[in-house]
């Protein structure tokens, strides 16, 4: 829109939800309940720093360092803190490892609890009613829709996240990845493989 458009002499009006959020922000900062600097810091963290690349680093470390893997499975919150990753809501992270016998898959049936510090903001499908309802009821069918076909003998275990406990799936290290360094391994770890709705990529 040109700045001198006579039909739009005023500023472009934000959407209704945008105005409502602005109103809350105005009230809460005026009352001193929220510090604008803290808001900016959170925005910067989630828009620029946090994302699945952090979870991928954790998985790659677990694949290449068995002592770290053991610590991760014993106490994931402490283990990821070794890599400088920590949660904001004091949530407890639990790592669940895929094996030839068990494939793990994560859902939150209540809302969309998710290991944000490791994976960022969840994708829309994770927040959808369809996934939240069906992941528990018919996980194999949901996996098939994601293009994941598991061997007959591998059972599926579904973990329901809560406000206090967030799960991170540690997928199985793909065949042919021997000799790759951590950075190359991390590049194979997809977001969905850490939710359990996908598998890591195979090395080229």
């Amino acid at each position: 829109m040109p700045h001198d458009d006579p039909d739009h002499p005023h500023s472009l009006l934000p959407s209704d939800p945008a105005l409502r959020v602005k109103a809350l922000e105005t009230i809460l900062t005026a009352k001193g309940l929220v510090d604008p600097a803290a808001l900016d810091a959170i925005l910067e963290t989630y828009e620029e720093k946090v994302g699945p690349h952090l979870g991928a680093r954790v998985v790659a470390r677990a694949w290449s360092d068995s002592a770290f893997r053991d610590r991760l499975l014993a106490d994931a919150t402490a283990a990821v803190a070794e890599l400088g990753i920590s949660g904001r809501q004091g949530e407890h992270v639990v790592a669940v490892e895929n094996t030839p016998e068990t494939h793990n898959m994560v859902v939150c049936t209540l809302c969309s609890c998710y290991p944000w510090p490791l994976l960022g903001i969840p994708p829309a499908w994770y927040k959808s009613d369809a996934y939240r309802a069906r992941a528990v009821r018919e996980p194999r069918k949901v996996l098939a829709e994601f293009g994941v076909a598991l061997p007959e003998g591998q059972r599926v275990r579904v973990w329901d996240s809560t406000a206090e406990v967030r799960y991170l799936v540690v997928p199985m290290r793909p065949e042919g990845s021997e000799g790759l360094d951590e950075a190359a391994l991390a590049a194979l770890v997809t977001r969905d493989s850490m939710i359990g709705t996908g598998l890591p990529e195979r090395p080229a």
């Binding site: 809460l28 808001l39 959170i42 989630y46």
Partner: peptide, 10 residues
Amino acid sequence: AQLFALTVAL
């Protein structure tokens, strides 16, 4: 993003 940050900040 603003809404998310506001909630986390509170």
